[in-house]
Amino acid sequence: MTESETPDLSAAPGAVLAAERESQGLSRQEICDQLNFTETVLAKLEADDYAALPPPAFVKGYIRSYARYLEIDPEPLIARFNEANADAPEPAVSTGVVPPEARSSDPLMRIATVAVAVVLVLALVYWWLGNNRGSVVDSVLPEETPQSTPSDAGAPAGDDSDFPPDSELFRDSAGTATETEQATVSAAPLQSAEAAVAAPAAVVATSVNQAADQSAPATPVQAVAQDTAEAADAPADAGAPAPKLSDVAAAAADVAGNVLLLQATEASWVSVIDAQQQRLMYGMLTSGTPRKLEGVPPFDIILGVGDGISINYNGEAVDFSSHLRSNRTARFVLAADGSTSKLP
């Protein structure tokens, strides 16, 4: 076949092949003999009757074989066949569109990954903080706990000048004093006859009846009482003496039993284990964040910076200066009666 005799490839493949065969002077029988086709298959192929032929994979094979035998390019004929049979089902070849799978390089996936990571980190921090508190009861206390004695509880009314009625602002440790009114009291030195407590402190207090004595001087106390009702009654009575800070601590001790109040002026590592081997605290005590611990005495106490911590036990200051070591640590046992002994 010469180049000038190129058949019209725009026609149906069977027609093109039949025309080419005839132009080369070949009979159907000769083609069948050469390509091992049956007469029926060849007749249907040339008639473009694909429905009567095997599936498209075979028909394309027939076209390819036939075209190659006639020495014409089979690809345009295959393309024509594919166009004509575009909607014909191909049983074994995938035609379905597979939804793309999530790729980690997608911006959305990256944002989601970062978001999940941030949530995990926040959850971890939240858990750690919550765990670190341990058995410590949340409480807000003055920066320096008053060095009060039991006698403070029965202090004469003459001491009232140190504790103006509206300065004793109490709040339930569980934060239940919702009916109270919050007031911020400016910092000022607190002087007590029994214990000289003089430290400025930011105070957030709750007053049931702040208006009861507006003229009273502000007192630098940030105190929390266990019993809001009890505390609220005191300032409500303008003529009654306001309870001292030591009273507050004692009241707290009465309610809770064996209560240790730890306060640091310097960050220190603290370990407190009670008689039941309950680890009441095991971690850092930061300056300005008092801790109230409850447990069964005697307590095994280890302080990293002994001279930077003051301890009140049931309202009484604990003197553990004899257990202070040269490296500033302190290890001692605090008995139920408030006495200390060396930690074995």
Partner: peptide, 19 residues
């Protein structure tokens, strides 16, 4: 017998595996 060459015979096995 008739013998037919598949379309893109080099990749038939792989495409079939995908299918």
């Amino acid at each position: 017998l008739p013998v037919l060459i598949a379309e893109d015979p080099l990749t038939c096995v792989t495409r079939g595996g995908g299918r």
